[in-house]
Amino acid sequence: MRPEIRCCHRNPKTGFSAVRLLAGLVCWCLLAAGCAPGHDLPDLPAAAPQAYHLGPGDVVRVITFGEDATTGEFRINDSGALALPLIGDVHATGLTTDALAARIGEALQHDNLLKAPSVVAEVVSYRPIFVLGEVSKPGQYAYQPGMTVVTAVAVAGGFTYRAVQDYASVVRTLDGVAVEGKATRQTFLQPGDVVTVFERWF
C-alpha cells in the first residue's frame, strides 16, 4: 500500500496576524520610549571648572588674625549675607572664599578695626541638595564635593522599582536663574541642585 503523505499548509491569515502583532508591539515600544518622562528635556549645561561660589545655606569658617570677634563659623543667611560681629552683614552670595575674605578685610579696615587685616575663609559645610521622585527616601541631603546623580540617589536609599535609571531632571540656579536639564547618572552635582528621578511607564 502506498503510504499517505500529508502536507502542512501554512494559514496565510494566521501568519499575517502574527506579523501585524509583532509590528504593533515594536511600534508601541518605540512610541513609549519616545514619550518617556523627561526624555525631551534639554541636556543640563555643563558646569565649567571654576572656584566654588558661595550661596545661602553654606557655612563658612572665617579666621581673622588679631581679631577674635570675627573669627568663627558663620552661616550665609537667606539674604545671602554673613552676619559678623563688629562689622554687621557682609554680602557673600556669588563670591569665592578668597573674595569673601578680601571683603571682610576691607570692612574691618574701613571701620578702623584693623589697619592691615589678614583674613582667611573656607567652606565648612555646603548648602544641601534635594533628591525627589522615584527614590526610596526623597528629601534634603548634605552635598559632598564630587557627588554625582547616581551617588545622590544612593544616599537617598536607591531607585524604586518604578524608576527611570538612565537619566534624571536636575534644576540648577545659574546666574540667579533656575534652569532645568536632563542629567546622566554620572553628571556632577552642585550645592543647591534639585534632582528628580522619573517614574517609568512600563
Rank of each mutant, 00 (worst) to 15 (best):
A47Q: 13
I63A: 13
I104D: 01
L44P: 03
V135A: 03
E134G: 02
T97C: 12
S118M: 09
L84R: 02
Q144A: 15
D40G: 02
V131P: 05
G80A: 08
I87N: 03
T64D: 12
T71Q: 04
L54S: 06
Y143N: 07
E67F: 09
M147N: 05
L54N: 06
L54E: 10
G57Q: 04
Y141W: 11
Y126P: 07
L113H: 06
L82W: 09
D58W: 02
S136W: 04
T96N: 11
D43A: 14
T70N: 11
H110A: 15
H91T: 13
V120C: 00
L100W: 10
E67V: 04
Y143L: 06
V123D: 11
A48M: 12
Y52H: 13
R61E: 15
K137F: 11
Y52S: 01
E134Y: 01
A47W: 00
S79H: 13
G133N: 06
G105H: 10
V59D: 07
G88W: 02
H91W: 08
H53E: 13
A116I: 11
V62C: 07
Q140D: 06
K115W: 04
F130H: 14
Q50F: 01
T64N: 11
P117W: 07
V59Y: 03
V59P: 00
R127V: 05
N112G: 01
A69S: 14
A102P: 00
T93I: 00
L84K: 05
G72P: 02
P45C: 04
P56K: 06
V131K: 04
P45K: 06
D68H: 11
V124I: 15
P45W: 11
R103G: 01
R127H: 12
G38W: 03
H53G: 03
A48Y: 00
A48Q: 14
I63N: 12
G88M: 07
A116T: 14
S125K: 12
V90T: 12
S118W: 01
V123E: 08
V135I: 05
D43S: 14
L95P: 01
P37Q: 11
A101T: 03
I104K: 10
A48L: 14
A92T: 05
V59N: 10
P117F: 09
V90W: 00
E73Y: 01
T71C: 03
H110Q: 15
Y143S: 09
R75Y: 02
I87S: 03
V123Y: 07
L44V: 07
D58V: 05
P145R: 10
G72E: 05
S125V: 12
L44R: 01
G55V: 01
P37M: 08
T93A: 15
G88A: 11
A48N: 05
V135Q: 09
V90G: 01
G57M: 07
P45Y: 11
A83C: 00
P45A: 03
F65H: 13
D58Q: 10
V119Q: 03
A51K: 14
P138L: 05
V123Q: 09
R127L: 09
H39G: 00
I63Y: 10
H53T: 15
V131E: 04
L113W: 02
D58S: 07
A48D: 09
A83G: 12
P49M: 07
R103V: 00
P42V: 09
A116E: 13
C35P: 00
V62H: 01
Y141C: 10
G88N: 09
G55S: 12
R61Y: 12
R127E: 06
